[in-house]
């Protein structure tokens, strides 16, 4: 169906993809998720084709979101697709206004239909027409962001593993920095802290796009998370397990003292 809905109303993974529905579930469960909308795969296709009605619906609903916007893919095809296609599909941060959304959505559609994405699909035996939903959210301007595993992805141990750095979480996800590394037990006790080398922070630019900004020398090896923030992340891990189940791979950000959930998916591999 040709739909665009507030994230909280996204229920059907076969329409909106697992990322959108996962965030919708989190929103309904009361977790802090940046406000956003979910576009069905067919709406994305229609917007990419330039269909005026679809474009108008998208722009109209996006006008309620505070700017700038983050635009991410939400693979519709099959279970675990988000993990499978991580790195194949495009994410566009800091889209300055709803007017620029159709172009951003088209770029994401093409990323799912790129030579590299199709080659990957052929290799894993998925040579079928890709369908990609899209999530559009208000982009946070976080002080710190990163990833968290509710179960150690290397050893399989029942402990939280957190990696964080200054600014947008893409610095951690893309490997731009060596992030700070923390291990915590289920009760929230810190088991280990290893400082990273966080020489840059990815920040949003005023007119769209992002920039790698140098981090002040005194912050490069200073821990980006204090005990209170670690405790809040521990609570987020617990809530995510209650909502989604065990062994979660979480992307988070902290802005103005609030811990936000950006993405939550199943850990695809553990050391066990």
């Amino acid at each position: 169906m040709n739909e665009v809905l507030p994230l909280s109303e996204a229920h059907d993974t076969s329409l909106f993809g697992s990322k959108a529905v996962g965030l919708g579930e989190a929103t309904r469960a009361g977790l802090s998720v940046p406000p956003g909308i979910a576009l069905s795969g067919t709406l994305v296709e229609a917007v990419a084709s330039g269909e005026e009605v679809a474009v108008a619906r998208l722009v109209q609903l996006a006008e309620n979101l505070s700017l700038p916007l983050a635009v991410r893919s939400s693979a519709v095809d099959e279970d675990g697709a988000e993990a499978s296609f991580a790195g194949q599909h495009l994410t566009l941060l800091n889209v300055p206004s709803p007017a620029e959304l159709p172009s951003a959505v088209r770029d994401i559609w093409w990323s799912a239909n790129s030579d590299s994405a199709i080659t990957y699909r052929q290799r894993v035996g998925l040579f079928t027409r890709p369908s990609v939903g899209v999530v559009v959210q208000s982009l946070l301007n976080p002080d710190v962001a990163g990833v968290m595993f509710t179960q150690n992805p290397v050893t399989g141990a029942d402990e939280r593993v957190i990696e964080g750095s200054w600014g947008l979480g893409e610095a951690v996800v893309n490997g731009t920095v060596i992030p700070d590394h923390f291990r915590m037990d289920r009760a929230g006790r810190v088991l280990e802290r290893i400082p990273g080398l966080k020489r840059v922070a990815i920040r949003a630019l005023p007119n769209g796009g992002t920039v790698e900004e140098p981090v002040p020398a005194e912050d490069v090896e200073r821990f980006c998370l204090d005990d209170l923030q670690l405790e809040k992340l521990s609570q987020l891990a617990l809530r995510c397990e209650q909502v989604y189940g065990p062994a979660r791979d979480i992307e988070w950000a902290i802005a103005d003292g609030t811990v936000y959930l950006l993405q939550c998916r199943a850990v695809t591999r553990t050391g066990r």
Binding site: S49, G50, R106, W109, D115, I118
Partner: peptide
């Protein structure tokens, strides 16, 4: 014409790479 979708490439960008799988 209705089947086509617009796509932009920046100067210097590789559009297709010899040897890779083909999508479009």
């Amino acid at each position: 014409a209705r089947l086509f979708k617009e796509r932009h490439f920046s100067q210097g960008e590789t559009v297709v790479m010899e040897g890779s799988g083909g999508a479009a």
